[in-house]
Write a protein that binds this DNA or RNA. Structure first.
Lengths: 343, 343
DNA sequence: AACAAAAATGCAAACGTTTTCATTTCGTGG
DNA sequence: CCACGAAATGAAAACGTTTGCATTTTTGTT
């Protein structure tokens, strides 16, 4: 077997035109603006295209009209419950518009993000979705200079430079904390990822602190635990936390993955949820509902965000205007399941 | 704000050439074959490019040399523990070669897969990776006719039409079943996804049945349970299974997700793992190691597969030849954790 | 310093579409 | 059946690169 390096056999618009006995212009129109060509002609062309196995070359078209039909999506990581749903929804929605998706992950490395944005720009994407608001100025400049539509996904804020669609992470965090406070908990441990270059985690942390302050609850320094985005590590940290004598009555986790780890830690240590300890997460990932007991958490509608973002981005690309709603908030929803109880 | 529909401002190779006082050919070479141009000239050009904010247009280049620098990856679903790792690794490896990834999911719908392949072909991808061996003839024909390198990922078989890289799913299933049999279990329930258009699940099922036959163990029809790829559903089915009087001593799950569901079902029903029941999965997904007790399963190295596949595909595209090893098997590894014990 | 060989650069023709403008064909009313 | 406006089609010029070939410059040798 051998793959020709030249793709010589591939018929182009020219061959189709010859076979159908029309000009290449008409063939082009048959595929890009079908109703500009008379049905009989169109049918002849379509048949010729079929017989030759013609597949249109969008790269060539893009060269001329500067629209590639491809949108970029840049996420911190693909390998991860949260973003997977977002990605899938984004991609599926794009399909409705006959667009494709170039995707890349930067692993929370802003320099790599710059390289990625550049690489996407080299492919002349029609628009780009970035997770969150923390981005290198270089990236934003490149995008702005070329007038490429940008949308920030996942997080929501009232006033932003670029359009966004997402949930209010501050509010979400406050909601779960209030829920825990309402149940009477006062000795609350906080397991949160590093908030370095991650506005979502930062917003959540801020929300938590705000709500605690309002309730006049103080948190001892050793109750504020930095925990990476990793079940194993979360489990380890929580085992340590709950096995000692000074066990908190509740744990607020920065996301559901950490909460899962906390669950397993409690199973391992024989600590009963929610009788001995209440646990809440943020995100409502796949599986959270089916943990035993179900995880109390707040649902951030990832699919909805992905779908809306794709729609908005396509609209921006098509119209050249910002989306109808510049700052689009999607509602988060507290899922009160079995992992929390009154103290 | 407004996004110009014409991207007028964007400088091209021509502007860079003018500013650097060289011909466009030299500018082109500076970016595509840097060591063909003398360092002083190159530096002048690079500076001019920097000052203008030039970003090369690969679509235009692709038009000429028929290589887009983009590879396609088609998976059943993105939103899913298994493929997420594969995707991420594939994408990361591609980055090493300065290639990008177009990805799409078909949700186990072969017709949609055809549409996707076509769409990718319209973007003139340099190669494509497909999950498994079950594909529509139409798709394969389109790819073959255009000499686009194809590789099958995830599953492994000895003799195949197209190159593949993956794990032997038959063997993997046999390994876990043998493990369960070795522990003395004879009343074994099987929870497997529908094997319709899914060669991986089919191979696993076959492996299970082979091993049971060899051991002369018969499985009652009601012990062979069809279970979708869904934690909630798995949990429901297993609760039913273990709550009755005729509880099996072991459950073999078609994948780790189902196993997770089985775990939660046992937690809910107060059935102790592994004392009351042994559970094994296939796949070793994220989190499986940290369940309590740890899930005994067989590790299918998703990241390794993705990485190798990307490398092979790039090589195929570059050389025009099949990869060095046409049928590449990656080793699976039994992870004997706490969820199994002797009967 | 002169010359040949090698290396660097320039010129111009592709690559496969889309689109503008001109031309032809079609449908309709008189 | 003709004339007319509208609709469909065709001709040709882009789009921004890459690359084969020709030309110029550099390098190395004597």
């Amino acid at each position: 077997m051998r793959y020709s390096r030249s793709r010589k056999g591939a018929p182009g618009i020219v061959e189709v035109a010859a076979r159908a006995g029309v000009s290449i212009a008409t063939v082009s129109r048959t595929f890009s603006q079908p109703d500009m060509v008379r049905p009989p002609t169109r049918m002849r062309i379509e048949q010729a295209a079929d017989e030759l196995g013609y597949i249109r070359n969008r790269a060539a078209g893009a060269l001329h009209n500067r629209f590639s039909g491809t949108l970029g999506l840049v996420v911190p990581t693909i390998d991860n419950a949260i973003f997977a749903e977002l990605i899938e929804a984004f991609s599926a929605r794009l399909r409705d518009f006959d667009r494709t998706m170039l995707i890349a992950a930067h692993g929370y490395d802003l320099d790599l993000e710059v390289a990625i944005v550049r690489s996407l720009l080299e492919r002349r994407i029609d628009g780009i979705a970035l997770v969150g608001f923390d981005h290198a100025a270089v990236s934003m400049n490149m995008l702005q200079q070329r007038d490429v539509p940008v949308i920030s996904v996942w997080n929501f804020r009232e006033a932003t430079d670029i359009p966004c669609v997402g949930a209010d992470n501050v509010a979400a965090a406050r909601t779960v904390v209030r829920h825990v406070l309402d149940l009477g908990h006062r000795d609350i441990a906080l397991l949160f990822p590093d908030v370095g270059s991650n506005d979502r985690a930062r917003d959540r942390m801020n929300g938590v602190l705000q709500e605690l302050r309002i309730a006049n609850v103080t948190t001892a320094p050793d109750r504020l635990i930095s925990c990476p985005y990793d079940i194993g590590e979360a489990k380890r940290l929580v085992r340590e936390l709950v096995s000692g004598t000074r066990r908190p009555t509740a744990i607020v986790c920065g996301n559901d993955i950490i909460a899962h780890g906390a669950f397993y830690a409690c199973y391992a240590e024989g600590v009963r949820i929610p009788d001995d300890i209440s646990i809440v997460g943020i995100g409502d990932f796949r599986g959270s509902a089916h943990l035993e007991p179900g995880l109390t958490t707040i649902r951030l509608p990832a699919r909805r965000i992905g779908s809306i973002a794709a729609g908005s981005l396509v609209q921006m690309s098509d119209t050249g205007m910002p989306p109808d709603t510049f700052n689009q908030q999607v509602a988060s929803e507290l899922k009160d399941r079995g992992s929390t109880t009154a103290v």
